[in-house]
Amino acid sequence: MAEEAKEPRRDMPRAILLVTVGGGLLFILLSWAAQVPRPSTTFETADSGATEVMTTIGGNRWRSSSPRPMSPAPSGRP
């Protein structure tokens, strides 16, 4: 990709820096958005934090839209 740039010595470090800063800002924004509806830092378990935030925001509606587990394929045997 750098060989296609007109000035790779200037453009590539700039692009790397912009992508890194942009990703960091996106992470900060999403973390803030998750703290607004549920400002608590205590969850039932450490692994259930995201689930509790989603339930606080949307209620139990999001659970009904999740795909149902598939039943095992028939083996062809009686």
Rank of each mutant, 00 (worst) to 15 (best):
P74N: 04
P69A: 13
V21W: 13
L26N: 11
M1H: 09
S71D: 11
P78I: 11
P67L: 01
S66I: 05
I28L: 14
V53L: 02
L18G: 15
E4P: 03
N60M: 14
F27A: 12
A46D: 05
Q35E: 04
V21L: 07
D11T: 13
E4K: 07
W62N: 00
S65V: 15
L18C: 13
I16L: 08
T51R: 08
Q35P: 03
S48Q: 03
P8D: 00
L17Q: 07
P13C: 05
V36A: 03
E44A: 04
K6F: 05
T51I: 06
T42L: 14
G24H: 14
N60R: 02
R77T: 14
T56I: 15
P69L: 02
E44N: 02
A50Q: 11
P69F: 06
E7N: 13
R61G: 09
R14T: 08
A15D: 00
T55C: 01
G23I: 05
S66M: 08
W32F: 12
F27S: 08
A50W: 12
F43A: 00
V36M: 07
A2M: 05
T56M: 11
T20S: 14
S40P: 02
P67I: 01
R38S: 05
G59R: 00
F27W: 12
T51W: 12
R10C: 09
F27I: 08
F43V: 01
F27V: 08
S75A: 12
A5K: 14
A34F: 08
P13L: 01
I28H: 07
F43P: 00
G22F: 07
S40R: 04
L17M: 06
V53I: 09
R63T: 08
G23R: 02
